[in-house]
């Protein structure tokens, strides 16, 4: 099985709505059509925010995963789940 190769990976851990969506827009503008953008986030709202925002930006979610992983922000906020999105720019 072929692994997904992202042209660009964006670290959105610790960010809250609406920043991951903003990052996705910026990220998609930095890759070429057909390439894949990886977004790593801790905001649970991204599960409902990223897919429609990706569609609106003419991109498709190739893969989406949710893994148990502890991450602590610089300010000490602790997160238990990591959300990963692989988004292909369609046009």
């Amino acid at each position: 099985m072929s692994e997904i190769t992202a042209a660009l990976s964006l670290e959105c851990r610790g960010m809250h709505c609406p920043l991951p969506v903003v990052q996705m827009k910026i990220g998609l503008s930095r890759i070429n059509v057909g390439e894949i953008l990886e977004i790593i986030a801790t905001d649970p709202a991204t599960e409902k925010d990223i897919p429609p925002a990706a569609r609106a930006l003419s991109a498709e979610i190739v893969k989406q995963e949710k893994v148990s992983k502890i991450w602590v922000s610089k300010t000490g906020e602790k997160y238990n789940i990591e959300y990963r999105y692989y988004i292909r720019r369609l046009k």
């Binding site: 709505c17 609406p18 920043l19 969506v21 827009k25 609106a56 930006l57």
Partner: peptide, 12 residues
């Protein structure tokens, strides 16, 4: 501003 940022981020 939250709504505006998100909407602009979606290309609205």
């Amino acid at each position: 501003f939250m709504l505006a940022t998100a909407a602009a981020g979606m290309g609205w």
